[in-house]
């Protein structure tokens, strides 16, 4: 197991009147090469959860293990952990600060103590993988478009060559094509480099499209953990948590109710199309007989 959480609880403002329990007794295993979607409404504790993965937040109780080692043991190198577990925050473009794009992406590798040449080659590779065109490398990170800024910021984390990449709503504010391009790029990274991806999102459609495993966080606990298809079968319960299933799930259930024998576990447009066409042709042949 790459990351393990054992009985992790986290409480904000311990000992004050504002004491809030953000996470309660979380047990979680994250393996290599997984593509995990994390959903939960605002304030459910999902942001707190992902900051445990790279040691930005210390659990009030319980253990966080990376590659079998407790990261809160005295002497554990947390800074090096953060290069293994890359975390891209929401609106990451707000962290850009250097005079040009390439230098900004080199910030992470420099903190790792690599030589300048290594930093630069890492940065170039990361920018390339994030889909930033080469003519922008020397541009100021403040003068490129919003979508490009986002890619540069993600490259800034990728350049550290992490084994795990956590992204907190990476597509917020992007237009539909920008969303698809970015997620496509992330999927490509996972397939090509075998990186473990943890994607926090509000979009059930994106989860259905890309994730192989889905975590639903609700009131500081993991309410569901499983393949998206299985989790979305519980769409009624998801609704009580202020969440929903992809639109396709609702369509399939509505069709089934009306007597069209479609596969209700379909969650993407492509699956739904296949299943509906199949059901329609079956219905047609039944009518003929």
């Amino acid at each position: 197991m790459l990351i393990e959480l054992k009985n992790v609880s986290y409480t904000y403002g311990t000992g004050t009147v504002y004491e809030v329990s953000a996470l309660e007794n979380i047990n979680l295993n994250i393996g290599e090469g997984e593509f995990i979607g994390v959903i939960g409404h605002t304030g459910s504790g999902k942001s707190t959860l992902i900051q445990h993965f790279n040691g930005l937040i210390r659990p009030s109780s319980g253990q966080v293990l990376f590659a079998g080692k407790d990261i809160w043991e005295p002497g554990y190198d947390l800074r090096s952990l953060r290069t293994h577990v890359g975390l891209v925050f929401q609106y990451p473009e707000n962290q850009l600060f250097e005079t040009d794009v390439l230098k900004d992406v080199m910030f992470g590798p420099k903190n790792q103590g690599l030589t300048l040449e290594e930093c630069e080659s890492r940065a170039r590779a990361a920018l390339n993988q994030s889909g930033v065109p080469e003519e922008l490398y020397s541009a100021s990170p403040f003068e490129i478009s919003g979508g490009q800024k986002r890619r540069v910021a993600i490259a800034g984390v990728l350049a550290m060559d992490p084994e795990v990449l956590i992204l907190d709503e990476p597509t917020a504010g992007l237009d539909p094509a920008g969303r698809d391009e970015l997620l496509g790029q992330i999927k490509y990274l996972r397939d090509k480099r075998g990186i473990t991806v943890i994607l926090v999102t509000h979009s059930m459609e994106d989860v259905a499209q890309y994730a192989s495993r889905l975590l639903v966080v609700h009131e500081g606990r993991i309410a569901f953990d499983g393949p998206p298809k299985k989790v979305f079968m519980n769409y009624r319960e998801l609704e009580t948590m202020g969440l929903a299933a992809p639109q396709i799930t609702y369509i399939m259930h509505a069709l089934r109710e009306k007597g069209l024998m479609v596969d209700v576990s379909a969650t993407t447009v492509a699956e739904a199309k296949r299943s509906i066409l199949l059901a329609l042709s079956r219905r047609a042949s039944e009518k003929q007989e």
């Binding site: 930005l56 290069t83 975390l87 962290q95 910030f107 800034g156």
Partner: peptide, 16 residues
């Protein structure tokens, strides 16, 4: 709040 966010984001990039 913003300072805190940026600080964490840079720490995630190995800043000390």
């Amino acid at each position: 709040e913003e300072t805190d966010k940026i600080k964490k984001a840079q720490m995630a990039r190995g800043a000390d």
